[in-house]
Simulated assay, not measured.
Amino acid sequence: MASPSTDHQDSDAPPGRERPSRLIDIAVGLLFLVADAVIVVAAGLLFVMVGMGSAEPPHSVQPARSRDVPVLAWLVVWGVPAVAAASAVVHARLRMPVTAVVQGLFTLVCTLLAVVWTRMLLS
């Protein structure tokens, strides 16, 4: 019986699943980096605009009012970090380390933004 080829003997991956090239990993990571930066800047600007629009004048003596926050707002605020985390896990499983790191950092930033948005929505 013939022995398996030497290129599959040292590999940890199953024979049918190859790792993407490093160049593809870097290109996808850069694309995600640009897209993630646009998302973070847009979320930050939206936070500032909504926060300034809902701010009351400093000498205002209005009673505190309760606002109901729609479920869709909560899904968006906490859904983006969840999707980013899923993307980081998927890219790590695809053995794309650069893209997985970019998505992992994006997950951290999205989680911090979600905490800030939650505080703003609850105040």
Score class of each variant (00 low, 15 high):
A85L: 14
D68H: 08
P15T: 09
G29T: 10
S60Y: 02
P58A: 10
D10K: 06
S123M: 02
Q9C: 01
D25Y: 03
V28Y: 05
R17H: 09
S3G: 07
A84W: 03
G53I: 02
V83M: 07
A2L: 14
S3P: 03
L23P: 01
L112V: 14
P57C: 02
S5M: 07
P81G: 11
V98L: 15
S5P: 05
A42F: 14
P57V: 04
D25R: 05
S60N: 07
L113Y: 04
V102N: 01
G104H: 08
R93P: 05
D7S: 13
A13W: 10
A27L: 14
L121S: 01
A55V: 08
V83K: 01
P97S: 03
S66N: 02
P97F: 02
L75N: 05
V61F: 10
T107V: 10
R65W: 02
L113V: 06
A55W: 13
L108N: 10
A84Q: 10
A84M: 09
F32Q: 00
F106A: 10
F32E: 01
D7E: 12
S87M: 14
V98P: 13
V89D: 01
D25F: 02
L94E: 03
G51L: 13
V98T: 15
A55I: 08
A35D: 04
W78P: 02
V116N: 01
M49S: 06
A13H: 10
V89T: 07
T6K: 15
P63V: 08
R93G: 13
D12S: 12
S87Q: 13
D68F: 04
F32P: 00
F32M: 07
V40T: 14
F106T: 06
R67F: 07
A85Y: 11
M52I: 09
V28N: 01
H59N: 09
G79M: 06
A86T: 14
V115E: 00
V102A: 02
G104A: 09
V77H: 05
G29L: 08
T118I: 00
A37M: 08
G79P: 03
M96Y: 05
Q62M: 08
P15N: 11
V102K: 01
L122G: 06
A86C: 13
G51F: 11
V116P: 00
I39F: 06
H59Y: 08
M1T: 12
T111N: 07
V102I: 11
V50E: 12
H59S: 09
L122H: 10
V61P: 01
V34G: 09
V115Y: 04
T118L: 00
W74A: 00
L33V: 03
L121A: 05
D12T: 12
G53L: 03
A114G: 10
M120C: 04
L33G: 11
V41I: 15
Q62T: 06
T107A: 15
E18T: 12
T6D: 15
G16F: 15
A13C: 09
H8F: 14
V77G: 05
A43E: 02
W78I: 06
V48T: 15
P81H: 12
R19G: 00
V48Y: 13
S5D: 11
A100E: 04
A88W: 05
W74I: 00
